[in-house]
Design a binder for these strands. Structure first.
Lengths: 239, 239
DNA sequence: CGTGTCCTTGAGTGGCTTCAATCAGTGTGG
DNA sequence: CCACACTGATTGAAGCCACTCAAGGACACG
């Protein structure tokens, strides 16, 4: 479950929060950091439950969910490689984190990180900028949930995942989204993120397929056949 | 449109971001700060448009919206007194800010504030905590948009506004939400925040009224008759 | 080969929307 | 003072999109 690793060979070091630290601090952080692995579907951290560590996602996708006693559940955020997991300055997060795919985390001690956050303006600022981006992303998604049709929702989600996976990819380069990859979410999870039912998601995927925008292949693979068409169907809106 | 004012007599100074500043800095800030007033319905700042100032809301309610060329519009956030308006470290915000009611702002120069933010750990941390709270609030709202029924949505909104107005009130005290006040949003705006149509909002308000949970009076006044019932109808979920 | 999980497909329903008419409140001009 | 226009809210009737219920297919596992 745990092993140490060097920041210098970290796959996400160019993009993760850690780059806000000066080198000497990075070294100190490294000495206390450790890795964790979760299989797909595993519970990571809980709503209203004390968490004494934070983490950077090294690989995989994490879903943040909120659910009601009556069974209704909504995914309220996805974390991709280089994203940060945790809620500083408050013991517990109001949401549950679960591994959507197999996940590798680089974990940091809560106190140590909060301390660093207060003492390192560069880190603090980087964290703030990221958090502001998260607010924007959440609000964009609010638009999707409130105003888009089922077809637009599904198209938007595929585009969002394509872009995020592309960005998370090792190649620092192109802004153009990936066109062929394994979709990290099940139909159920797609529905939970889009505010739809699983059957509706299935039907809309079929519609996108018939329209020639995408193709679904072996396993959970999705191939973007016609990016322009997909963007048109998403109302040029996503992320 | 503009006038100066002293922080010491500021109505929101206990709750606004400024309290993250040491006194001397507060004085300096005060010398460059100025007030602005907007009538209800006025445009304040725009999507994708450079904004060279930030502001603290002194009174009134601001709505943040996103809209598509085809006319669909969604309110993605509300700002109440003591809240902060603006998007540091990025020229333009992706959302439009409009006055929902008459609004009074205390404005700060963008460069000056960003500078302060980098130099003042206390301010930066306070800002970060607030931003984290905003992410949480946005995600809670995502749940509402994706999973709640029309009736639950309307009940949740009334509760949210009751709590926020209460908190914004001069009395620092009680956590119990206000029970009688002028609702700051029109039916259209309620619909735009809830992902509903105006007619549906109207019908659900009637339902809440028939159920004895609320009462609507002169103008836009709303009276909470049965708080427990209202919370039950909102699924004990809001904000 | 049976069982379980995930996804797909079909048929019918229902909740919210759409379209439309009415009402209340306010301001304007004759 | 009243007729008229205009805006925001309410109410009714009809329609549609996504949901619900149900069955069946694909695939993995023991």
């Amino acid at each position: 479950m745990r092993k140490r690793n060097a920041c210098t060979i970290c796959a996400v070091r160019q993009k993760a929060l850690c780059r806000g630290l000066p080198e000497d601090q990075q070294g100190r952080l490294n000495r206390t950091a450790y890795h964790r692995h979760y299989d797909a579907g595993r519970f990571i951290s809980g709503a209203d439950q004390r968490q004494d560590w934070f983490a950077t996602v090294l690989s995989g996708v994490i879903k943040l969910t909120k659910s009601l006693p009556d069974g209704r559940q909504q995914i309220v955020g996805l974390l991709f490689p280089a994203d940060f997991l945790g809620r500083p300055f408050r013991g517990r997060s109001p949401f549950t984190a679960e591994a959507a795919t197999a996940v590798e985390l680089c974990c940091l001690d809560r106190c140590h990180f909060e301390d660093l956050l207060q003492k390192t303006p560069g880190l603090s600022q980087l964290f703030l900028e990221r958090t502001l981006d998260e607010v924007d992303a959440a609000r964009e998604w609010m638009f999707l949930l409130g105003r888009k049709t089922a077809e637009e929702k599904v198209a938007s989600l595929i585009l969002l995942v394509a872009r995020r996976l592309r960005r998370a990819g090792a190649d620092g380069g192109a802004e153009r989204p990936a066109v062929h990859w394994d979709f990290p979410l099940s139909r159920t999870e797609m529905a939970e993120y889009l505010g739809l039912r699983i059957e509706t998601v299935s039907r809309q995927i079929r519609a996108l397929r018939s329209a020639g925008a995408i193709e679904v292949a072996e396993g959970r693979a999705i191939i973007v056949r016609d990016l322009a068409a997909l963007e048109r169907m998403a109302q040029k809106e996503c992320e």
